[in-house]
Design a protein around this nucleic acid. Structure first.
Length: 105
DNA sequence: AAACTGACTTCTC
DNA sequence: GGAGAAGCCAGTT
């Protein structure tokens, strides 16, 4: 019985950790992966309470339209810089989901 | 236990 | 394509 009873937050971090470098995932996508397709908002909170970037690369999480909605370690500006450095394609201020959206498979 | 808040998403105008 | 409003979820007060 592996009942580790991961809290929603921890599950979100687990998923976030699997996002490969150079790719990004949307809040809704993560929400769905943890079992709450409509909990995108809750996911955002988990990112905010994220203790460290090592625990969860929250910079790889963007809004459904590719917009950077927030970043607890320096702001969206820093977030964008990191993503660019990881090779994520940008279109203006938004991520080019066509090329950089994480394809779980 | 109830109410409020927020790094969301989707629909309409 | 941009602005406004409503719906949903978990965490915090």
């Amino acid at each position: 019985m592996s009942e580790l009873k991961l809290t929603f937050r921890e599950k979100v971090w687990e998923v976030t950790r699997r996002i490969p470098k150079g790719k990004v995932a949307t809040y809704g996508q993560i929400a769905a992966l943890v079992g709450s397709p409509k909990g995108a908002r809750a996911v955002g909170m988990c990112m905010q309470t994220n203790p460290s970037i090592e625990n969860a690369p929250c910079h790889r999480v963007v809004a459904s339209n590719g917009k950077l909605t927030g970043y607890a370690f320096g702001g969206t500006n820093v977030k964008k810089t990191i993503l660019l450095k990881e090779g994520v394609e940008f279109v203006g201020d938004k991520v080019d989901l066509k090329q950089s959206l994480w394809d779980e498979n």
